[in-house]
Simulated assay, not measured.
Amino acid sequence: MVEPKTKIISTNSRKNNLNIFSRVNREKGAYFFTLPGNIVLLITAIFPVLYSFYLSFFNMNVYHFSNFSFVGLEQYKKVFSQLDVGFFTILIRTIVWTIVNLLLQVILALFLALLLNVKDLKGKGIYRTILILPWAIPSYISALIWKGMFNYDFGVINIALKSIGLRGVEWLNNPICAFFACVIVNVWMATPFMMIVILGGLQSIDTELYEAAKIDGATPWDSFKNITIPLLKPVMFPAVVLTAFITFKQFDIIYLITEGMGGKTDLIITYAYNTFKTNNYSLSAAFSIVIFLILVGLTIGNMKFLKEKK
Rank of each mutant, 00 (worst) to 15 (best):
D222S: 14
I229H: 04
A190H: 10
G217D: 03
T191N: 06
N226E: 13
K225N: 15
V240Q: 04
P220N: 05
D222G: 12
L242S: 15
I205Y: 11
F224V: 03
L202R: 05
S223P: 07
K225V: 13
K214Q: 06
D216M: 01
F193E: 11
P230D: 10
T243Q: 15
M236T: 13
M236K: 07
D222P: 04
Y210S: 04
G201I: 14
L232P: 12
A239E: 06
Q203M: 05
P238C: 06
P220G: 00
T219W: 01
L209D: 02
L232G: 05
V235Y: 15
T207V: 12
F193Y: 15
P238I: 03
W221H: 04
W221C: 00
P234T: 08
I205D: 00
S223L: 00
W221Y: 09
G200R: 10
P234D: 06
P238W: 07
A213S: 14
E211S: 01
I215M: 03
M195G: 10
I215K: 02
V241T: 15
P234R: 11
I198N: 13
W221N: 02
K225A: 09
V197C: 13
A239V: 14
Y210E: 02
S223M: 08
L242K: 14
I215E: 01
T243N: 15
K214I: 02
M195C: 14
F193D: 14
V240L: 14
T207P: 01
T207I: 10
P220Q: 04
E208Q: 13
E211C: 07
W221R: 05
F193C: 12
L242Q: 14
V241Y: 05
L199V: 10
N226P: 03
I205R: 02
N226A: 10
T207C: 06
G201Q: 07
T207S: 15
V235K: 10
F193Q: 11
I196K: 11
S204E: 09
P192T: 03
I229N: 08
M194H: 05
K225H: 05
G200P: 02
S223A: 14
W221I: 15
L209M: 11
D222W: 06
A190K: 12
K233A: 11
T219A: 00
P238N: 11
Y210L: 04
M195Y: 07
K233D: 09
A218G: 06
T228F: 09
A218K: 00
A190L: 11
I196S: 04
S223I: 02
T219D: 01
D206Y: 00
I215A: 00
L199A: 06
L199P: 03
M194V: 10
L209N: 03
M236G: 09
F224I: 08
T228K: 06
T243Y: 06
T191I: 13
V241N: 06
I229D: 01
G217L: 03
